[in-house]
Design a binder for these strands. Structure first.
Length: 1069
RNA sequence: GGGCCCGUAGCAUAGCCCGGUGGUGCGCCCGGCUGAUAACCGGGAGGUCAUGUGUUCGAAUCACAUCGGGCCCA
């Protein structure tokens, strides 16, 4: 054991520990140690390689790390491979920015091969940066062996999965409406759409009814650019629609509007006057034909027969008539398919109108809104600007459009029931994350569009015949090589694009140009990480995952994509348990964002307080699934707790070293059996703290099992602060100061050693550095070489003494009450008191105080602590009449009764009434029955007794002084001053001194002189074995010699001058 | 517009499932302690339990509505 630095310096300790682990290859050793254990298959949700981690990412990995460390300590062989998501649009967009590209054409010009090599470079560079950042959080995952979505084996797993989808008929090539980013020129998944406010025109448009004059259907839209693709108007069959004669500027128009909405709509159109001419049910107007108001300028529109159709999604808002453009909306598309409407989409991939859009050709759709409105001319009924939530591309933030295109889909909608059934089998932390949130999301799930018209991603392994249009899904590289007769150097684009397969029809099959939605990459992680399907053994032994944990945004992300892919491939969920965690918000509960300037980075926190404190803070401040409101004050509090842990650890070390203490061991391995064998001989406080650490261990264990990391960590912090620091260490201090051999001291050593060993074991998953540092200093020479090699200890029930813990609780309440009463009586704790009395009716309290008599006396600094059941004879009670009750009961005799009560023996009265009896008082003329409602009692304490309430009782402290108590009080005052002076001179504990104390009060001088020299000298090391006592008192007027330090003190009204000299030479000359 | 979660003192949290005097920590003020000491302990002040309505003898807790925050969806 070595000395411990006074200050807890997180940064240097953590650096040292990480160096230590890397020199000794501790992580490998730990993995090796657990390699024969029962496997615990964890799958790391792969972070996207953006290059920087934020507080939320840190939280994510810290949570994973702590839970995995727990499982390792429990003997599990944890599969802890890290993962990285390295493909996809975000990286493409970054690289495009670096290269100054504006559109896909720039990429094609630059060359796909060069472009994807740039993307690869970018991803790998960032992956390495992130490895370092995670490692510096003390995270023990397998980073060198991380699965990477760009690896050929990984890509093959994705291919294989798609081939399974094809086998099961779950893959569909479809012409459908998808979310489309006009900047990235690709389809994007529902999961990739981000909603944000957007300003758009909100317009009401008149569609002329065919064959009628001046009669229109009135529709509403916020996307005028979709009007060139209009094919129908939808109504609700059971709504009432009205034909309205609307007057504006002396012009009259006939409009069809849902009847309840007429007034509001016409107000928007500034129609001063209107009349409802007739009404019809929606069902009655179905089939009516109308013409496009854009027919004259959009050739496409002239070929379409527009009609009214019924739809169940029509709501009673706006006009109750919905503009339908099946090429530009999901509901529209579904309706169009059902009703056999034309599905037109006169918009190209870049979001520009095609030739068939007539005068709009070449215009970007969102920019053409105004032109469309102009072209509508008189058909535009009303217009305003609205701000509404609108979908944006998750990467480039461009507002998306809906576009009917040819894409590849997984038929999630057909698997929904199976997925829901699987969700129910998974254990969710918290339960509602699965049973409510995820369940609802899946219930709404639509088919998954997995194709993207991009470059940096897993190529979709579908080859289509150029001649007969047949397609084939390739599941493995070997199959492709066999069919094509070519070796595949790299499965990425553009390399794989050159590979062709002969078709049975004699034609040539070429790969479709699409790549996978990047969410499909990570969706296959749970088997791709096991090398499946290339290797099958791990998969058969381990899959599905025992545990995953990710942020709440992953409900629609990874939790979902994995479930979808896995249900297709294997018909079951890929995970057995899922912990959904929250988001890191700022102290106000607002999202951290660069534009608010409220971002706190993990590095900042680490620079201030270190990693372990960050970890402990994050895990303790909220439940995993609640959002974390980051708060520097809270960090400070946890930092203080860590400091106290350090102080508790440090405190006994110098004494242990001085005494050459070695904990009980068998051949150099710590033997905790010593504690069990000696427990009965140990003092109460030792048995208490041993009991506590074991019950704490039980609580911590069950909390972690339920992912309640906040309960586990709070329990530990609370134990350190309350039980260990504020209670045990305070009580055990004097035993540590005992000189020479002592059983009591030895028990204290063994106890605190035991407690520290258990404590750091429990804390190791959360605070891996500080616990390792402590362990390295405390461990016996043949103990395991790292705290992380220890087995988890969930507490031993036979060491838990509930009654004792309860008794200590009572004594602590007693302790607090004493301090309270002393404060009221203005008697400092340094001054002993003759007696403390506990008055109680509780046998439990009596037993506790009597059981822990010694502790009580020590804590109270009292010569005697006694318990009185019921009434203590030194307390008097004074009876006070309750006039409110006397009046009604005794009428005009009340004043007499009042006097009688005041004159009665309060003690007797209270006793009787407490026993539930009534008392008869009389004055000779008459008698009166006095009951509990007529009287209250106040305490009459002796002059120098002060009271304070404690748990189920009251504490009375008698602060009267006699000569003996006073002498001791002054002694302790003098000792305290001398110690203070030693500290000022920065003396080591073992340095001898000589002292003179000039007491400027003759009475006090007489009190101290002759009796106290020895006592004081012994405490402050002013007594030398051969030379005797080197402390003397001087009376008023005596001269003081020269000293190294002289100080004047005010002590209880008297002045004392203390002179102190270091060493023994001068004072004794 | 919909789903889920959250709202308790200046700040952070427990209690809520299963109704019965709202605890704790930080900060603040006052006092104490002093061989863990840039620590530690005691006391005090500080609360419309987001708001409103309902159920109930009784609501922080249950129900409904509203407001605010977060995540997700349309």
């Amino acid at each position: 054991m070595k000395e411990v630095t006074a200050n807890f310096n997180a940064q240097s300790i953590e650096r040292e520990m990480r160096d230590h682990w890397s020199i000794h290859d501790t992580y490998k050793t730990v993995k090796q140690h657990r390699s024969a254990g029962k496997p615990f298959f964890f799958v790391d949700g792969p972070p996207y390689t953006t290059g920087t981690i934020h507080l939320g990412t840190a939280w994510n990995k810290i949570l994973k790390d702590s839970i995995l460390r727990y499982h390792r300590m429990n003997g599990r062989n944890v599969i802890d491979r890290a993962g990285y998501d390295m493909h996809g649009l975000p990286i493409e967009v970054k690289v495009e920015q670096e290269l100054g590209f504006k559109s896909k054409k720039d990429i094609e010009k630059y060359g796909i091969q060069k472009f994807i090599e740039k993307c690869r470079e970018f991803a790998i560079k960032n992956k390495l940066l992130m490895d370092d950042q995670f490692t510096s959080l003390g995270v023990w995952l397998d980073f060198p062996g991380a699965y990477k979505t760009v690896m050929p084996g990984y890509i093959e797993a994705a291919w294989w999965t798609l081939a399974r989808a094809e086998d099961k008929g779950m893959l569909e090539r479809g012409h459908r409406v998808v979310n489309w980013c006009p900047r990235c020129e690709t389809a994007i998944a529902d999961a990739e759409v981000e909603y944000a406010d957007e300003k758009d025109p909100s317009v009401f448009v008149k569609f002329p009814l065919k064959g009628r004059t001046n009669e229109f259907l009135l529709i509403w839209t916020t996307t005028p650019w979709t009007l060139p693709a209009n094919v129908a108007v939808a109504v609700a069959e059971d709504f009432e629609y009205a034909k309205v004669l609307a007057k504006k500027d002396d012009k009259e128009t006939l409009l069809w509007i849902a009847e309840p909405l007429v007034k509001a709509v016409l107000k928007k159109g500034r129609c001063k006057d209107y009349a409802i001419l007739e009404t019809k049910k929606g069902a009655e107007i179905i089939g009516w034909v109308y013409e496009s108001p854009l027919a004259s300028c959009v050739p496409l529109q002239r070929e379409i027969v527009h009609k009214i159709v019924a739809a169940d999604f029509v709501a009673l808002e706006n006009t109750g008539m919905v503009h339908i453009a099946p090429g530009h909306g999901w509901d529209d598309f579904v309706l169009g398919t059902k009703e056999g409407l034309a599905i037109v989409c006169p918009v190209d991939g870049a979001g520009k109108f095609k030739e068939e859009a007539g005068i709009f050709a070449g215009q970007f759709v969102r920019d053409s809104n105004e032109n469309v409105l102009v072209a509508l001319g008189d058909h535009l009924f009303a217009k305003e600007i609205v701000t509404h939530r609108y979908g944006h591309c998750w990467r480039c933030k461009t507002p998306i459009i809906f576009r009917a295109t040819s894409q590849w889909f997984l038929k999630i909608s057909e698997m929904r029931d199976l997925m829901l059934a699987e969700v129910a089998k998974v254990t969710w932390y918290p339960d509602w994350a699965g049973s409510a949130r995820f369940y609802d999301w899946i219930k709404e799930a639509r088919d998954w569009c997995i194709s993207r018209q991009r470059y940096w991603g897993i190529p979709i392994p579908v080859w289509v015949c150029q001649k007969c249009d047949a397609y084939r899904v390739i599941g493995t590289f070997a199959e492709l090589e066999e069919r094509s007769g070519r070796l595949l150097a790299d499965p990425h684009r553009p390399y794989v694009d050159d590979v062709t397969i002969p078709c049975t029809c004699g034609g040539t099959m070429k790969r479709v140009e699409d790549i996978f939605d990047v969410w499909f990459d990570s969706a296959v992680a749970s088997w791709a990480t096991l090398g499946y399907p290339g290797k099958t053994q791990d998969f058969e032994n381990l899959w599905p995952a025992d545990f995953i944990t990710e942020g709440q945004d992953q409900t629609r992300g990874w939790f979902y994509s994995q479930l979808g892919a896995s249900t297709i491939a294997f018909g079951k969920a890929p995970y057995k348990s899922v912990c959904m965690h929250g988001f890191a918000l700022d102290a106000e509960g607002k999202k951290m964002s660069k534009s608010y300037g409220n971002v706190v980075t993990p590095e900042e926190v680490i620079a201030k307080v270190g990693v372990d404190v960050l970890r402990l803070y994050i895990l303790s401040s909220s439940a995993p699934w609640d959002d974390l409101k980051f708060n520097w004050e809270g960090v400070g509090t946890i930092n203080r707790a860590a400091n106290i842990l350090w102080n508790v650890y440090r405190f006994p070390v110098p004494y242990m070293i001085l005494d050459n203490f070695e904990p009980a061991n068998k051949g150099g391995t710590w033997d905790d059996a010593y504690i069990r064998e000696h427990l009965n001989l140990m003092p109460d406080e030792d048995r208490f703290i041993i009991s506590r650490i074991n019950s704490v261990a039980g609580t911590v264990d069950s909390a972690i099992k339920e992912c309640q990391l906040q309960r586990a960590t709070r329990e530990l912090v609370n134990f350190i602060l309350e039980d260990l620091s504020r209670w045990y260490v305070q009580l055990v201090r004097e035993r540590m100061w005992l000189e020479g051999e002592s059983k009591s001291k030895h028990y204290a050593y063994e106890t605190i050693y035991y407690v520290m060993r258990r404590l750091i074991g429990l804390l190791a998953p959360v605070c891996p550095h500080i616990t390792e540092e402590i362990y390295q200093n405390l461990r016996c020479k043949n103990d395991p070489s790292s705290v992380h090699l220890l087995d988890w200890n969930k507490g031993e029930q036979e060491l838990v003494d509930t009654a004792l813990e309860q008794a200590v609780g009572i004594v602590r309440s007693f302790d607090e009450a004493c301090a309270n009463a002393r404060q009221t009586g203005k008697r400092k704790l340094r001054w002993p008191v003759s007696e403390v009395v506990v008055v109680t009716n509780s046998g439990t309290v009596r037993d506790a105080i009597e059981l822990l008599q010694a502790v009580c006396m020590d804590r109270a600094n009292a010569r005697k602590v006694s318990v009185v059941m019921g009434r203590w004879e030194r307390i008097g009670w004074h009876a006070e009449p309750v006039m409110k009750a006397l009046g009604p009961g005794f009428g005009k005799n009340s004043p007499k009764v009042k006097a009688l009560i005041e004159g009665a023996d309060g003690n007797f009265l209270k006793n009787e009434i407490d026993m539930g009896r009534t008392v008869t008082l009389g004055d000779g003329d008459a008698t009166y029955e006095i009951g509990t409602r007529h009287v209250t009692f106040t305490e009459k304490l002796p002059a120098e007794v002060f009271s304070a309430p404690m748990q189920d009782g009251t504490v009375y402290v008698d602060v009267r002084l006699d000569e003996d108590l006073e002498k001791e009080g002054y002694e302790r005052e003098v000792i305290r001053r001398i110690q203070e002076m030693r500290k000022q001179l920065d003396l080591v504990v073992s340095e001898y001194i000589s002292v003179e104390v000039l007491v400027n009060d003759l009475r006090v001088y007489n009190l101290l002189n002759n009796y106290s020299n020895h006592t004081i000298a012994g405490e402050v090391l002013a007594v030398v074995p051969d030379r005797g006592v080197l402390l003397s008192f001087l009376k008023p007027g005596d001269p003081l010699r020269t000293h190294d330090l002289i100080k004047e003190w005010e002590i209880e009204g008297a002045t004392e001058t203390i002179g102190m000299t270091v060493g023994i030479s001068r004072a004794t000359q």
